[in-house]
Design a protein around this nucleic acid. Structure first.
Lengths: 110, 110
DNA sequence: TGACGTTATTCATTAAGAGGAATAACGTTA
DNA sequence: TAACGTTATTCCTCTTAATGAATAACGTCA
């Protein structure tokens, strides 16, 4: 018997521009865990450049910085989440959870 | 004030393979309206080839043909939806409608 | 003041997808 | 049997996205 399922993807937009998806959320979490954008990128198998542009885009779109980047200094610098950065990660997970439930329900109906 | 919204995309999979999304649904509707795959593709600004491969993929994955293609004959041939093809278009619209409601609710929460 | 490890940026190459062009194949109809 | 308009298929080009390499810039600390 063939298995039919409803799948999907959600993301957050600000003024119609892509702001946050699951990939960026994972990046934020890695940044919080590792304290370094470079290490976060590598741990996800992501190029540093792509990760950097993602952070830059997020910080530009958000009303307040999500990631605080520090260049030079102790350890060469580093990256960490701001308070609003940590908040938005939690909020996103709530939405993603509801979405999984939605998809499951729709798959059952099929 | 910046406008923050949750957006997304859903599709139907069969055995984990992409089966139906909004584009393919639109294609099915155009086929029903125009009776020709070529005309349907053109009306959507789609290349015939892409439309053809989409139909082929759908027909192969579905338990029963969604689109009946006829080559040669009166008018050169034509394309039309099977009964199960028409059914699935209706079902998809129901799911898509629920999804819009879901997205609106999530956007309100933000 | 030099070493360090990070952030910040540019450049060139490669991979993949989209698209168009061209043509074969088909079956009815006049 | 020739014309017609469609389905069916192949091939090549072009554009765009992804990737990696290389390097500059920075600020602390020994």
């Amino acid at each position: 018997m063939k298995k039919v399922t409803v799948n999907g993807r959600i993301w957050v937009e600000i003024n119609g521009e892509n702001f946050l998806g699951s990939g960026r959320i994972e990046l934020l979490e890695k940044i919080e865990a590792l304290g370094s954008l470079r290490k976060a990128a590598i741990s996800m198998g992501l190029s540093y450049r792509k990760a950097y542009y993602a952070v830059r885009s997020m910080n530009e779109l958000a009303p307040a910085l999500l990631v605080e980047l520090k260049q030079g200094g102790k350890g060469g610098g580093g990256a960490k989440l701001s308070k609003s950065g940590r908040k938005i990660v939690i909020k996103y997970h709530q939405i993603a959870h509801d979405f999984v439930i939605f998809l499951t329900k729709q798959s059952d109906v099929l």
